[in-house]
Design a protein around this nucleic acid. Structure first.
Lengths: 225, 225
DNA sequence: TCCTTTATTTTTGAATTCAAAATGGTCAAT
DNA sequence: ATTGACCATTTTGAATTCAAAAATAAAGGA
């Protein structure tokens, strides 16, 4: 179905930053680029607006949602709560095979840490957290988590990780893995909460939200190109 | 804007049960009823599908989502987690005025309990929980909570409350209020979790009412004929 | 020169139209 | 009588069209 396809493509463009936060989205241009008519695109925009990725302005079109500092804090809080919940549920339901998968991802991540490969490290990190959420066996939870993390990821293109922070993160991950192995629900929930609080502090401290307009100007240019 | 209006109207129809779970939604009929063209209605249906209230079948139209037992359990689990998070946050941020409001609602609820007025009791109950979520001061959280509770509410039109259950619920609410007054975040989170687990047991045990699916009904009729 | 006002163009919101897929019904064949 | 193929009708998916609102450009006056 075309509709689903379009939602996916546009969502990807938003998450990849191809359409930067705050950028206006001229329907006609996007239609041309995607080779579709306006009808399915507009449907997709409404859906993405409901997801919080797009902002609709009455009679003035839509723009990519721009997150304020407060929005970011809120998203992190919720993400934290969802992960803690996922951890608790995962402890009840996770299989040995799934734990092994998490352990493998953790090992790979540690290796990337040694190699100082930040990008690959992030990939593994995300895989671990997603594996835990999946292990919770709750599609509703998975859906909300996906939605929230997508919005967060979109805002921070790059997080500068100081060495001590990085080391701490790794230690926390080790603790997470151990709690999972012990199937210690409360312990895991607690670790996940502090782990994410640390990440939040990192991101918020870095100051992701530039309120200047040059970014918007660039957005228009890139979209036309 | 028409689009928002339509989403709201159709969502209400779904939540009120005017469109029962599992029912097919013929676009043309609904357009006629709402006096609009198909375009805005279809946009609305896509949004509601993203919210989980409507199910889209490729080339076969849409139907009101029908929740399975598992879906219900998942929703409750998430709702539980969200409320616990809201409670923790509320303890940090709630004002004395807001606490007073919760206390008032609680008192009213206790009165309705005395009067055996289940409907009004539910109204107050919901108001209390929503007040706590609001007091968390996190719009992202509020949005997700709203979405999840809406889906839950849709499934259970009526929950048969046995007297002992009801009494227990009231006691738990008393404990919730006290924890709020003490601003005891961990305590409140714990109480909210058990409180909602009890409610979930109630609902799941009752076997939430399944309204008849027209398609199924017709199939059965033809079989008998 | 700058601001206000008006006309033109562009863009959005929603209805209509068109094509494709599915549904329902009829009729022949076994 | 039941099954299966074929055609008509309905319904959906997406493009196009039309109207209204906003943005832009232009002209006139202080």
């Amino acid at each position: 179905m075309l509709h689903e396809e379009v939602v996916g493509r546009v969502r990807a463009m938003l998450l990849e930053g191809e359409i930067p936060p705050g950028a206006r989205i001229p329907e006609r241009d996007l239609c041309e680029k995607l080779q579709i008519s306006r009808t399915p695109l507009r449907e997709a925009l409404k859906v993405l607006a409901a997801e919080g990725l797009v902002q609709l302005l009455p009679n003035r079109g839509s723009r990519a949602a721009k997150l304020t500092d407060k929005d970011m804090r809120d998203l992190f809080e919720v993400c934290q709560g969802l992960e803690a919940l996922a951890g608790e549920l995962a402890c009840e339901r996770i299989t040995d095979a799934e734990i092994a998968a998490v352990a493998a991802a953790h090992a790979a991540m540690a290796q990337h840490y040694q190699d100082n490969d930040l990008l690959q490290y992030y990939r593994c990190n995300r895989a671990i957290h997603e594996a835990i959420v999946t292990a919770a066996g709750n599609p509703v939870l998975s859906g909300l988590y996906e939605s929230v993390t997508a919005r967060i990821r979109r805002a921070r293109y790059v997080t500068p990780m100081t060495p001590p922070r990085w080391e701490l993160a790794l230690q926390e991950h080790e603790a997470i893995l151990n709690a999972l192995r012990r199937r210690d629900a409360l312990g895991l929930a607690h670790i996940l909460r502090t782990h994410l609080r640390h990440k939040r502090e990192e991101v918020l401290q870095a100051g992701f939200a530039e309120t200047e307009n040059p970014g918007v100007a660039r957005a228009q240019l890139r979209l036309q190109a």
